[in-house]
């Protein structure tokens, strides 16, 4: 795709602008995007721009083949080049396949490439673990009553591990 502004270079930056109630898509080369971004900076945030400033990935490898064109996600059949063209990934597996390129891109956008925060099912998991914990504790009491101290020690370690896990999860929530 050619750049919408100069019509010359390959477009690598994709912007969505809302002007007068119309959504306009702009495809720009990096140079024009810089000019445009200076124009827009006072009006728009940089999110959209950053969304387009995709890491171009490794250039030609030794055999002259650009991996961004040849490496394909096995699930959605997308290449990194496809992603650079439209700014959207095709499926969750893309994150595995293009992990290296994406990490770099995510650092540019967010300043980080590791998630901190909420996890799905966390609440439910903790409830289940607490049930497990109660069960283990009562088993432990039984063993102590029966004076089976070796088995009790194993259970005690298990409880400690579980507690640590739960603490970590609570911290991540």
């Amino acid at each position: 795709m050619k750049c919408d502004m100069c019509g010359n270079n390959q477009a690598s930056v994709h912007l969505t602008e809302v002007i007068n109630d119309k959504v306009t898509k702009l495809h720009l080369c990096e140079e024009c995007a810089k000019i445009k971004s200076e124009e827009m900076q006072s009006h728009f945030g940089l999110t959209d721009l950053l969304a387009g400033l995709m890491d171009l990935g490794p250039a030609m490898s030794e055999d002259g083949v650009d991996p961004s064109v040849t490496v394909q996600c096995p699930v959605c059949l997308m290449t990194y080049y496809d992603f650079q063209k439209n700014g959207k990934l095709g499926c969750g597996k893309c994150y595995d396949i293009f992990q290296r390129n994406l990490s770099e891109l995510l650092r540019k956008i967010h300043g980080a490439d590791r998630h901190v925060g909420k996890m799905p099912f966390a609440g439910k998991k903790i409830v289940e673990e607490q049930k497990d914990m109660q069960k283990i504790r009562s088993e432990l009491n039984e063993l102590i009553k029966k004076e089976e101290f070796e088995k009790a020690a194993i259970l005690r370690d298990r409880i400690k591990d579980l507690e640590k896990e739960m603490e970590n999860e609570a911290g991540a929530e």
Partner: peptide, 13 residues
């Protein structure tokens, strides 16, 4: 690693 996965990387995490 990446948290909630989204179609556009601006929302990942």
């Amino acid at each position: 690693i990446f948290g909630y996965l989204t179609s556009c990387p601006t929302n990942t995490g």
